[in-house]
């Protein structure tokens, strides 16, 4: 008998919703003489969709890169935990592969997938952190290795079902439409059973239909599977629609932090966006949101 309900817990976090999952504590990052981040502090709560917004060059991606171990901030610390028992991990002093093992998964602004591997293989790679293979059984496809492989495939298939990419299962990723590739990247991150999902502009370069689709999948992952999500996004309508919490950066500093309604009513935010006449849409959204 086919049970249509999902069997796997994709959320790697064992914290109560609403308790702190990640704390960014006064980090400062500079490259030579350029300051990318100045004394940035924020807190991400379990179960939230936490958006980080700001004009170009505000330091959003630098912040994400610091959290996933690609950059090392000169000052401050980023702490993260997935359960009370395990306690806090220092992300700022850890290598990227360590951070992945702690359960921090991320997607990139420019898609970083293996173009010649299939959708299935790419997502299965996300299971890598959970593989515990011994050489011999793995070589002869026997016993524990075999059981493990089947169990992992079941998780991967559930993700394929969740993201509705069954028809692309055996296609090479490079041949797929951009919107589908983005979905595969989200799938690979999910396959890690992340405690925290970092998404760098998941909707960049998409048309409005693809954006709507992606927003829906992000919401599904967050609301139904409980995965804490930090995302960088430019589309204000999307951010205001789906986020629980918004942090606004400008010139490497936090200028506002709060719920979408609070943030869009904040004069400093309107100033940052309207001051340079570049993004009128936030002004409009901000005014709507304030009402």
């Amino acid at each position: 008998m086919i049970d249509r309900a999902y069997r796997f817990e994709l959320n790697g976090s064992r914290l109560e919703p609403g308790t702190p999952q990640m704390q960014v504590d006064g980090i400062t990052l500079w490259f030579g003489g350029v300051r990318a981040l100045t004394d940035v502090s924020l807190e991400v709560a379990q179960g939230d969709i936490h958006a980080i917004i700001g004009p170009n060059g505000a330091g959003k991606t630098s912040l994400l890169n610091s959290a996933s171990g690609l950059y090392s901030p000169q000052e401050g610390a980023i702490r993260y935990r997935r359960s009370e028992e395990e306690g806090w991990h220092q992300l700022t002093s850890s290598k990227p592969h360590r951070i992945a093992r702690y359960g921090v998964a991320r997607s990139f602004q420019n898609i970083e997938l293996f173009r010649h591997l299939t959708v299935l293989q790419n997502i299965a790679l996300g299971r890598h952190v959970h593989l515990e293979n011994r050489l011999l059984p793995a070589l002869v496809w026997f016993g524990s290795a075999r059981r493990q492989e089947i169990a992992h495939r079941e998780v991967v298939e559930e993700i394929i079902d969740l993201l509705e990419i069954q028809s692309h299962r055996h296609q090479a990723v490079g041949a797929l439409a951009y919107g589908i590739q983005k979905r595969v990247e989200l799938g690979r991150a999910l396959a890690m059973e992340p405690g925290l999902l970092l998404l760098d502009e998941p909707m960049a370069g998409m048309n409005s239909e693809e954006k709507e689709d992606m927003a829906r999948y992000i919401l599904v992952v967050n609301q139904l599977r409980g995965v804490t999500t930090v995302l960088i996004e430019h589309d204000m309508d999307v951010v205001m629609d789906i986020s629980d919490h918004v942090t606004v950066l400008n010139f490497g500093q936090v200028i506002a932090d709060g719920t979408p309604t609070e943030v869009s009513a904040n004069p400093a935010v309107i100033e940052a966006y309207l001051g340079n006449d570049e993004d009128e849409s936030l002004g409009a959204t901000a005014r709507e949101g304030a009402q």
């Binding site: 008998m1 086919i2 079941e154 298939e157 559930e158 394929i160 079902d161 069954q166 299962r169």
Partner: peptide
């Protein structure tokens, strides 16, 4: 039989 999770699931 319905294909689900990539496998034909029989009844």
């Amino acid at each position: 039989q319905e294909k689900r999770y990539g496998i034909w699931q029989p009844i």
